[in-house]
Write a protein that binds this DNA or RNA. Structure first.
Lengths: 229, 229
DNA sequence: ACGCTTCAGACCGACCGTCGGTCGGTTGCT
DNA sequence: AGCAACCGACCGACGGTCGGTCTGAAGCGT
């Protein structure tokens, strides 16, 4: 094979990008390292020059993903004019808008995540989220407690629980979105479910019903519409 | 190899039993089919006579497990003298007692479940639980609503959320138990966490604080003690 | 009652393609 | 010269397939 030398980071990102695309298209387990290197045009040894294992590749990929998402939310967190309820809502809104903006890529990610196999992928992602975004939530909740908006015995645990609930809601929505039956009935179920989850989140925080919104109808709509077209 | 003929169910259970032991001891991924059949004393073809794939084996194994657990809880559910709060508490208590009684096997299961790899196993188990025990919770919650003990907008979703929370708590407890540092501090963390989760469950259901207990100190104690000996 | 045939299904194990991972060596840049 | 990027033949283990053998019991004619 013709030998092409590139800079460390360039080659590494090339591998990460191709791997990401393939994982989205065909799933983690079904994407062999052979496929990845064939697509990049590089030898087996080169892959293992950059990653110690297939799992290592996945770890780095997900970390990169989450880091870029956190950057979008950061401004909200550090805004001193927002109270805890505003921050909680805005953080969810921002991540929702991000998903709407990248609808196509996002749907691919969903399809990859919930392909039934790929349990490893889901597991890793939820762990990373638990380690990175839960602490952020905890900070917000602490702020809310000191502001008198929330009453809960433990901010960190509450954050983890909300994180878990959000993941769950996300799961349910994703599965409904993927089975491609955008009937009015399914849409109603979906909205009902998201309302039930919001109620739960508010109650866990000890906030008045309707304080916090984790998934607005405006965010869901574009995805439901996407199926009809 | 000497040929030994057995009845269908006998051979099948033999394979399931051996596979279970090996999965517990060495994890799902690391247990090859070759290992299983070697331990049973049977050929590759025989294995595939009973199971269509390794995944199929896992499915049937977990289903068997969950079915036996449900049998223990059933009496509680059908007891007409218990109100929803009693049922919720008793169901959790029974499953706790079961775990204490089978402490050794249970710890093996934990070790297998949370071995970091084995995400597939965890994923499957939590799905099965979601499909089998969440509906049971939902029934209890509906009863509680009509008794006036609970106020929540949707029994099914509440059940799923509680299921998810319980899983989460279970996760955290398991990981703490497995890292084998039964310090007084860890114990405190653990109790705090379980209290936070109970608070959340009560709030989701709209029940007074302290109504529902999902993990009593009496249940945790034997496992913490188990480490010192 | 008796042997004989038949047949489902329990059982076998060599074999296959694919996989993740290794390693000794080559090439190109500084 | 030295270091890092790169190569690709090779490895053992894996999940899964397949063509076929063996066995026990039911059904049969006598």
């Amino acid at each position: 094979m013709t030998r092409v030398v590139k800079e460390h980071d360039e080659r590494k990102n090339e591998l990460l990008d191709v791997a990401q695309t393939l994982f989205y298209e065909e799933g983690y387990e079904k994407t062999s390292i052979a496929k990845i290197i064939r697509a990049v045009g590089v030898a087996k040894g080169t892959f293992y020059h950059y990653f110690v294992s297939k799992t290592d590749l996945l770890d780095q990929l997900l970390e990169r993903q989450v880091r870029s998402m956190l950057k979008k939310i950061e401004p909200v967190l550090s805004d001193p004019n927002l109270d805890a309820i505003d921050k909680m809502n805005k953080a969810h809104a921002v991540s929702g808008q991000y998903k709407v903006a990248h609808k196509k890529v996002f749907m691919m990610l969903l399809r990859a995540l919930y392909a039934d196999e790929n349990a490893v992928l889901r597991d890793k992602l939820s762990k990373i989220r638990m380690n990175t975004v839960a602490p952020i939530f905890a900070k917000i909740i602490e702020q809310g407690i000191s502001e008198g908006h929330f009453t809960t015995s433990n901010a960190q645990y509450a954050a983890e629980m909300i994180m878990g609930l959000t993941n769950h809601l996300f799961d349910a929505v994703a599965r409904l979105l993927l089975q491609a039956k955008p009937t009015a009935e399914n849409k109603r179920h979906l909205l009902e479910r998201s309302q039930a989850y919001e109620q739960a989140v508010n109650r866990i925080l000890g906030a008045p019903d309707g304080s916090i919104h984790i998934m607005s109808p405006d965010m869901i709509e574009p995805f439901l519409g996407g199926f009809e077209s």
